[in-house]
């Protein structure tokens, strides 16, 4: 715990974070690339067709990781915002600012791949059921956080306003997750659960879980890249940035 706190305090120093992240990014990006490529090969070539859906089941290997990680992004953004607000930690706000557009991109992917998948399986691109609607609300929340932060001249004020929206919006995450259990939806309920047996055959579960892992590592790398940019933007007048570009 102590070692973690030391690491945490060191990380909260922008120049330290900037250097550390610069070294760490390839260690996430390359494994992400390899894992996703393997998962795509397994998903598109090696995995079997579904007994009902046929080949369209292969859309699952990009749809499900996008959807899961869109919720993961939102939760992380809310946690970073809360840390930034409570401890007045600027770097945490920078992380939250870095996550928002990445999360919006994943939510967009989840919605669009879901719509394309819906046509051959359900017979429609879109319905206003609880799952689809709450995921659409997630996209609006991400966009709202981005817009709100930019709406203020003063960066600290923008950070605080965006933090409040991010924290308030986090109630939508359990709503998305449990919508398929709480209410009747056209969307099927969860196939993979942490405990208990999953409804997916292992030949399909393997590429799915590999893709989720690949997407997760990719996102960590992307968020580190975007946070470095945020740090540069926010600290552009600081001495360490000047020294950095001169050396």
């Amino acid at each position: 715990m102590n070692a973690f706190m030391t690491w945490f305090y060191q990380m909260s120093s922008p120049p330290h974070f900037y250097r550390w992240a610069g070294r760490a990014i390839p260690w996430f990006m390359w494994p992400a690339l390899i894992l996703s490529a393997v998962a795509a090969y397994l998903g598109l070539v090696r995995s079997p067709e579904d007994y009902q859906m046929g080949h369209t089941v292969r859309i699952m290997y990009v749809h499900v990781p996008s959807a899961w990680l869109s919720m993961w992004c939102y939760t992380s953004m809310a946690v970073a915002s809360a840390i930034g607000w409570i401890w007045r930690m600027k770097l945490a706000h920078a992380v939250a600012a870095a996550i928002a557009p990445a999360g919006a991109a994943l939510t967009f992917l989840a919605l669009v791949t879901g719509a394309i998948w819906g046509k051959p399986t359900w017979g429609t691109y879109w319905v206003w059921d609880a799952r689809l609607t709450s995921e659409l609300v997630l996209l609006f929340l991400f966009m709202g956080v981005v817009l709100l932060r930019n709406a203020f001249e003063d960066r600290a004020q923008g950070d605080r306003a965006a933090a409040i929206l991010a924290i308030v919006g986090v109630v939508n995450v359990p709503i998305i997750h449990y919508s398929v259990n709480w209410w009747n939806t056209l969307h099927q309920s969860a196939s993979v659960s942490v405990a208990g047996k999953s409804g997916i055959d292992s030949s399909m579960l393997m590429p799915l879980l590999l893709m989720v892992l690949g997407f997760t590592l990719y996102l960590v790398a992307l968020i580190l890249m975007r946070t470095r940019n945020e740090v540069l933007l926010r600290e552009s007048r600081k001495r360490w940035v000047q020294e950095l570009v001169q050396s």
């Binding site: 079997p48 067709e49 579904d50 007994y51 009902q52 859906m53 089941v57 699952m60 399986t121 359900w122 017979g123 429609t124 319905v127 056209l186 099927q188 309920s189 969860a190 196939s191 409804g199 997916i200 055959d201 030949s203 399909m204």
Partner: peptide, 17 residues
């Protein structure tokens, strides 16, 4: 109007058989 609702089970045809 009729829409199909898929369940949460995915498997190859052999397993289903």
């Amino acid at each position: 109007n009729i829409l199909a609702k898929h369940d949460e089970n995915y498997m190859p045809p052999e397993v289903a058989d």
